[in-house]
Amino acid sequence: MKKLLLSATLLLFTAAGIFAQDKFFTKSGKIFFKCTKSSIEKIEATNKSTTCVLDTKTGNMQFAVLMKGFEFERALMQEHFNENYVESEKFPRGEFKGQITNNKEVNYSKDGSYPLKVKGSLTMHGVTKDVETTGTLTVKQGKLSTNAVFNIQLSDYNISIPSVVSDKISNTVNISVDCLLEPLAK
């Protein structure tokens, strides 16, 4: 009886392990953005604490980022970003929920680099908009790294640029996402 219980427990844990292996995640993903218009002044920032979860079975993926976590080279720029543009007190998080539309073309059990097509919705500054982009997923020794670059328009998210700085800040923001994902069950 004891042996039976032990076997059943082992089976349960193995099954849970296999199930969990479908999901990969990181809490230290990197998001870099730039919206520089003039060559004199660089307007760019990095967030190194992005959460990303990918379900390899369904291709569902989700990113979450705390807006206050974006670091600029200049402190004043960072303050203006939080207070005047993204209003991070009122809208503390940015979030992407979407899906890898060509998930069947990715062999997660074989090392290699695979092109991705991603479609989903990006929520920022209280506004949700559809986003579509391409990227790359690399499988290497059981870990996945994802990379995607895409553009959004600030005006789509109700973020306006004052005319005084319109020659410096571009309405088009170039966003790049880099995440090294590990299996959820360790």
């Binding site: 809490k27 959460t51 705390l66 998080r93």
Partner: peptide, 12 residues
């Protein structure tokens, strides 16, 4: 910089 509540991954 804030708090991320997450039941699946743990809250941070």
């Amino acid at each position: 910089t804030g708090f991320n509540a997450d039941e699946l991954l743990g809250s941070d």
